[in-house]
């Protein structure tokens, strides 16, 4: 038990009431009052029931299965890796249909992954909670300088959900970054798949999408994830993820 009892300032005893400030701090050990938490306010439950029923009907649909629980983590995590890979898979299909070269890599916003995915059945609601925002996927052409700025930014954030690139972080600084598709080609410009939230400068992202460098796919991140989970189900498969040291 940490206790910081500070001496009462004597002058405060004579000071005017209006100037009364905290002059004694007594932090008791955390008291957990679980018995308080035992029951529900049934009136509130009943009041919200029509909304709950409507939501459960629309969001309780099982769209597929996951072979493992997925939570987010830095520098890389199961959930982030899965989301980046799912976006890459679905956008690769979109690119094929639209005669556009597929992007070299994908980077998403760690902070934008808002809930974990459970093992087993995945409902539509699970994906809405994971990605509640209406962010859309964009493809941005970037230079080598942009890539360096991206590495610096990602290092400062401690990692990110990515696929198609590998990087090393050392004490908050980017040690190295490599685009996997570029291993034997020596390109100096790359294409990056990301969300319009990041491309508009969200979370301090260093690369801005403009009319000159950006292709909008019109695909919502959430719809892409829903599609990916469902496609696995149609193939009697479940989604999976792994950690492979892509960022460390």
């Amino acid at each position: 038990m940490r206790k910081c009892v500070l001496p009462i300032c004597i002058f405060l005893m004579f000071a005017s009431c209006a100037a009364l400030r905290i002059n004694q701090v007594d932090l008791p050990q955390l008291a957990r009052v679980d018995s308080l938490a035992a029951s529900n306010d049934t009136t509130l439950i009943q009041m919200l029931q029509p909304f709950r029923d409507s939501m459960n009907i629309r969001m309780g649909i099982v769209i597929g299965q996951s072979s493992q629980p997925m939570t987010k983590a830095l520098p890389e995590g199961l959930l982030g890796n899965y989301c980046a890979e799912a976006c890459m898979r679905q956008v690769t299909d979109w690119c094929r249909q639209n005669q556009t070269p597929k992007p070299d890599f994908c980077i998403l916003n760690h902070g934008g992954l808002r809930a974990s995915l459970p093992f087993g059945d995945i409902t539509l609601g699970n994906v809405y909670e994971l990605m509640p925002f209406d962010n859309e996927l964009v493809i941005i052409r970037i230079s080598q300088d942009d890539l360096k700025a991206l590495a610096k930014h990602t290092a400062s954030k401690g990692g990110a959900p990515v696929v198609g690139l590998r990087m090393r972080i050392h004490e908050g600084e980017a040690d190295s970054i490599e685009i996997i598709s570029n291993r034997n080609s020596g390109k100096t410009t790359f294409t990056m798949l990301t969300s319009d939230y990041l491309a508009n400068g969200g979370d301090g992202f260093p690369i801005r999408g403009t009319s000159a460098n950006q292709t909008a796919t019109g695909l919502k991140v959430r719809d892409v994830l829903i599609g990916d989970v469902h496609e696995h189900k149609l193939k009697n498969d479940s989604i999976r993820s792994g950690i492979d040291g892509r960022i460390r």
Partner: peptide, 20 residues
């Protein structure tokens, strides 16, 4: 806890969970 002489406080952080 406010009196004429002093203002002090206590705190708790309550977990919202079911028991058992």
């Amino acid at each position: 806890i406010i009196s004429r002489k002093q203002k002090r406080f206590t705190c708790e952080s309550l977990q919202v969970k079911k028991t058992g």
